[in-house]
Simulated assay, not measured.
Amino acid sequence: MPLSLHPEIAASYGPVLEGLAAAPKIAPHNLAGVRNILDVMINGVANSIPSDPDIQLTTYEAPSYDGHIVKITRLAMTEATLSSDATSSPGPAVLYAHGGGFIHGDVATWTRFVQRYVRDLNIPFFAVDYRLAPEHPFPAATEDLYAALKWLQSHADKLGVDPARIATMGHSAGSSLAAALGIMARDRCVSPPIAKQILLYPALDDRNTAPRPAIDALTFWPSNWSIVAWSAYLAADKVGKDDISPYAAPARLDDFKGLPKTYLDVGGLDILRDECISFAAGIAKEDIEVEVHVYPGMPHGFDLTTEPYETLDRAVANRVAALKGV
């Protein structure tokens, strides 16, 4: 049977996809075109989500590998909202990387999508404003995230964080960076190691750019956009070549030993679905704890909405449960 949108979201997502299908096709290297559409789609939804008045945002700075100053925004419940039995001992934290295909987005926008987790878990999130491509191609974004991790570990005591209980999390390209960070931190013998990685439909494989007719018309991230994103991040003449580092495209990894415990979810109508499943299988083969959810009928970015529906509630609950184990 042909693939189709889940009935839960067909009414709200269908017209948007029809609009995208009717719009002029984005050329394989039309960076401005993709950025403009992402502005409308992602920023439009984010701006319709009110900021949570009980969550306080505090911005810190950390130097990256090349001297660039990375901004890190802490999202945490205000003291007035904490329960009387809240402990003052160091606890878990999440280092977060936003989505946007390596070419778009910022913390100010994406905090609207993660504030629900801050409230549900009552643990701080540290969102990283990593540099975007093509203005800053690989390895800038991954190194910015690594700098943020080292900064968080070194300031853990002052921030009330247990350095052994730091998880990483990201949406889309942000979760690709989180996966790359897991590999980089392992290879650089970061201690304590990352406690867990929460990967939400990560973009892992630069070789996955061929058209997917059965999925492209049903998703918010069609195959030709991946060409734009990977070309900006790696350079067009390097995409798909043999010498790509797993720090750039984690699907290139050969040795999965020593990676963090992993939670991963992806929609069944996501062009990234197969590479996500393959990456999770590589981790599982090393007997590392891994939890995978594939949600039928769900496109890329299925959770970036203000419309409630059952699968979204289930996905959020599964993510919260995974983070409670950190």
Results as ranks from 00 to 15, higher is better:
residue 1 M to W: 11
residue 3 L to R: 14
residue 6 H to G: 07
residue 9 I to N: 11
residue 20 L to D: 04
residue 24 P to K: 11
residue 25 K to N: 05
residue 26 I to H: 12
residue 27 A to F: 06
residue 27 A to G: 15
residue 27 A to L: 15
residue 32 A to R: 00
residue 36 N to E: 10
residue 36 N to L: 09
residue 37 I to G: 12
residue 38 L to E: 03
residue 43 N to V: 03
residue 49 I to N: 00
residue 52 D to S: 15
residue 52 D to N: 15
residue 53 P to Q: 05
residue 53 P to F: 03
residue 57 L to R: 09
residue 59 T to R: 13
residue 62 A to M: 05
residue 65 Y to M: 07
residue 67 G to D: 08
residue 67 G to R: 10
residue 72 I to S: 05
residue 74 R to H: 07
residue 76 A to R: 15
residue 76 A to Y: 01
residue 78 T to G: 13
residue 83 S to W: 08
residue 83 S to V: 06
residue 84 S to V: 12
residue 85 D to R: 09
residue 86 A to T: 15
residue 88 S to R: 12
residue 94 V to N: 08
residue 94 V to P: 06
residue 96 Y to A: 02
residue 96 Y to I: 01
residue 96 Y to N: 09
residue 99 G to V: 08
residue 102 F to H: 09
residue 103 I to M: 07
residue 105 G to H: 05
residue 107 V to K: 02
residue 111 T to A: 04
residue 122 N to P: 07
residue 124 P to Y: 00
residue 126 F to I: 04
residue 128 V to H: 02
residue 130 Y to D: 02
residue 137 P to S: 11
residue 145 L to R: 05
residue 147 A to R: 03
residue 148 A to M: 06
residue 150 K to L: 12
residue 152 L to V: 04
residue 155 H to G: 00
residue 156 A to M: 06
residue 164 A to M: 08
residue 165 R to P: 00
residue 167 A to W: 03
residue 171 H to N: 09
residue 175 S to R: 12
residue 176 S to F: 09
residue 177 L to R: 14
residue 180 A to H: 10
residue 183 I to N: 04
residue 184 M to F: 07
residue 187 D to V: 01
residue 192 P to R: 13
residue 193 P to W: 03
residue 195 A to Y: 00
residue 196 K to S: 08
residue 200 L to I: 11
residue 206 D to F: 00
residue 207 R to V: 02
residue 208 N to L: 13
residue 209 T to I: 12
residue 214 A to F: 05
residue 222 P to Q: 10
residue 225 W to L: 11
residue 232 A to W: 01
residue 233 Y to Q: 13
residue 235 A to I: 06
residue 236 A to I: 06
residue 242 D to L: 11
residue 242 D to H: 13
residue 244 I to F: 10
residue 246 P to S: 09
residue 248 A to T: 06
residue 255 D to S: 03
residue 257 K to C: 03
residue 263 Y to E: 08
residue 264 L to Q: 12
residue 267 G to A: 02
residue 277 I to N: 00
residue 280 A to H: 00
residue 280 A to P: 01
residue 288 I to M: 12
residue 290 V to R: 13
residue 292 V to P: 01
residue 292 V to D: 04
residue 295 Y to G: 05
residue 297 G to S: 13
residue 305 T to R: 02
residue 309 Y to H: 10
residue 310 E to K: 11
residue 310 E to N: 11
residue 316 V to T: 10
residue 319 R to S: 07
residue 320 V to T: 14
residue 322 A to D: 11
residue 326 V to M: 13
